[in-house]
């Protein structure tokens, strides 16, 4: 299991366009990625490829989330997703 934390950079938080960009990128990866707020148990983590789950997570700008994945390519996959979260797509 690989874990990475990321701080949400988008002004509107993780919804609308930023969530669409992130969910689409997560769906295109070879591994399954989950997302949870920092400090929440791993078993409550949500499917990172679900735009609806991301909207339900309600992460605001500055919130910290944990991404988790397993298997080959997990490191690279998480690295690419962290980059998306730490970019302000509304800028």
């Amino acid at each position: 299991m690989t874990e990475r934390t990321a701080t949400i950079a988008s002004r509107v938080g993780l919804h609308a366009r930023p969530a669409a960009i992130f969910a689409e990128a997560a769906a295109d990866l070879p591994v399954e990625v989950t997302i949870a707020r920092l400090g929440e148990p791993a078993e409550d983590a949500l499917d990172a490829a679900s735009i609806l789950a991301l909207m339900g997570l309600g992460a605001a700008q500055g919130d910290v989330v944990v991404l988790r994945a397993e298997g080959d390519g997990a490191d690279a996959a998480l690295e690419s997703l962290v980059r998306i979260l730490e970019t302000d797509h509304d800028a």
Partner: peptide, 18 residues
């Protein structure tokens, strides 16, 4: 365009389908 793109993603959303 942005609204339609997000709506397209919702149509096959893994959480909704699950």
């Amino acid at each position: 365009k942005a609204v339609l793109e997000a709506t397209a993603l919702m149509a096959a959303d893994p959480m909704l389908l699950k």
